[in-house]
């Protein structure tokens, strides 16, 4: 069994990392959206527009 494992594609680690990164970045995106909502609540601006403006910067 051990020997078979030695021949495993090291890509298996890179699959797992993608799941982790997507999760971490996903949280970032979530909070960013959250922030836009708070910001728009006080500035009374459309949150979608706010997002576009930010992206264009």
């Amino acid at each position: 069994m051990r020997f078979i494992l030695l021949y495993l594609d090291p890509g298996s680690g890179s699959y797992l990392i993608q799941v982790i990164i997507a999760a971490v970045l996903g949280v970032g995106f979530f909070f960013r959206n959250f922030w836009y909502r708070i910001k728009s609540f006080f500035t009374r601006r459309d949150p979608e527009k706010e997002k576009e403006n930010d992206a264009a910067e």
């Binding site: 494992l5 298996s12 680690g13 699959y15 797992l16 799941v19 970045l25 995106f29």
Partner: peptide, 29 residues
């Protein structure tokens, strides 16, 4: 990633799943 792949034996055999939405997040990132 470097430390995960050096310990890839532990995760071997488990095929990670990544939804389309997550893949989009990865590429955008």
């Amino acid at each position: 990633q470097a430390s995960l792949s050096s310990s890839s034996i532990k995760t071997a055999g488990k095929q990670a799943r990544l939804s389309r939405g997550k893949l989009v997040v990865l590429l955008d990132g």
